[in-house]
Every structure is written in C-alpha cells, then in structure tokens.
Amino acid sequence: MTRYMLRRLSHSVFILVGISLVTFLLVHLSGDPASLYLPLDASPEDVEAVRASLGLDRPLHRQYLEFVRGAVRGDFGISLRHREPALNLVIQRLPATLQLAVAGMGVAVLTAIPLGVVAAVRRESPVSTLASVAGLLGQSMPVFWLGLLLILLLSVKMRLLPPSGRGGISHLIMPAVTIGTYSMAMVMRLMRSAVLDVLGRDFIRTARSKGLPERLVIYRHALRNALIPVVTVTGLQFGVLLGGAVITETVFSWPGLGRLLIQAFNNRDMPTIQAAVFVMAVMIVAVNLITDLAYSHLDPTVRFG
C-alpha cells in the first residue's frame, strides 16, 4: 500500500511540474510579456527597461525557476487590471466556484445513482426508458444552451428563479442543474451498466440462492460492487465540472473563478490567468489523487497489481 501511494504521489508531482511548465510558457508563447505593461507607442528604451525590471532579459530556464519559486509561495505577481496580488483574486473567487461544482456534483450523483440502479434492476420499466432518454439528451445538450433554456423557462416565462448572480439557494438551483447535467448523464449510464454487469456474477446467484431478499441482494452485494468504477469516474468528473464552471459562470454571471479567467483572458491579464489556471489544475490533480487512493482502498487488486 505504501509503495503504491508513493508511486502515485511521485506521479502527481511529475504532473505538477508539467502544469507549471505549461502555465509558464503561456506567457511567452502569446507574445512579448513586456508589451502588456506598456503603451503601444513605447520607445525601445522603455521596452528594454520594463524587460529588465520584469526579469525578462534573463535566460528562459532562470525565469522558469523564478516562476516556480513564486508559484510555490503563492506569488504569481500583481494583477494588471485589479492592482492586487493575482492569487488573492483567485482565492476570493474560489468559494463561489467550489460551491457551484459541489452543488453540481450533488445534483449529478443524487439523481444518477438511484436512476442508474433502478434502470438496471427493472430493465423493461418506464424508469429504464426514461433513464436512457435522459442519459442521451444530457450528453447531447451543450451546457450553455441548457442554461439559456432554463433562464428562458424558469426566469423569463415563469418568473420563479433569478436569472443571474450569486445569493441564496434560489440563485444556485439553475447553475447547479446546468453544470451537473452532463456528469449526471455520464454517471447514470455507467451506474446502469455497472449494476447490470455485477448482477450477472456468480456471487449474486449465491446470494439469491441462499434466500436473501432481493432488496438486500441489490443493496448489500450489487450496489457496493457496482460503485467501484463509479467512484473513479465521479472523481474524474470533478475536472469536467471545473471546466463547465467557465461556461456556466458566464451564462449565469456567477462571480467565480471561471468568469475571472474569461475576464482575465479578455484583458490579457497574465498574472491572473496564470494563477487561475494553476490553482484549477492543482485542485484537479489533488482530486484525482484522492480518487485513485479511494479506488485502491475499495478495490484491493489495484494496490497489489
């Protein structure tokens, strides 16, 4: 177990190095970073002065090390637009995005797992048909269009929910459903096929033949085993949800990390972009690591394999 954890951990460190490299290169690939700090008609001497003050005249690998040193300490520089440390901006927006992602995940898992199980256990029932249709539609609908339709229906026509902004629970419902629908469809389809797969195994036949009530066969034996692959995919969905946050936050004017990022892109606010991208990626790496460790706990063949 310890060996598996160590290997998995070193793997994550490697990925973090890769991420830092990509985030660092973003600045240099998109043109001369010094030009972001200068008016268009700046003289060559001014450009040189700024380059020197930003450390851009040093070799690239030295700059990279400097960037990593800053990133580890949480220093990504000052936001060009907000005149504030970029990391502060990111941390201010983080709770809103996490709230949205967790709520979306909640919507997805709480509907997907019961629906998936019922669809698998009662294969010919209307619930099963409903589940397959919902699964297909959920995966075929663009996130932002679903958001627009919800606003159109629930805010404009029925005037039930506020169309934008962050506030009470009524503000959260539509964005959470919007962001969670794709993952819901994904998890439900997987849950359904996992339960179907488990129900065909020998140990289920044993459980049935020893006279266990069908309800207990499902809950105690089938569900537990079917959840193993679902845990992995649910963990991976976290990254999808964070990506979805960029779009969902734009649709609902949700004041989170995604919107900060898009605004920073439009303002070419490099330090903010780097901080936001880096923080998001680190979160995803962390969640994937936790998922893998949870998975190895649930399925012992992984850690000894």
Binding site: H11, G243, L261, I262, M280, N288
Partner: peptide, 15 residues
C-alpha cells in the same frame, strides 16, 4: 497524456 488530462479541456482550449 496525464498532464493534459489535469487541465479541464475548456481551460486548455481557451489558453
């Protein structure tokens, strides 16, 4: 592939 998967697609694409 792992590094790329650590970035949400939309993040990588916008970048």
């Amino acid at each position: 592939a792992d590094i790329q998967l650590a970035f949400p697609f939309i993040l990588l694409a916008t970048a």
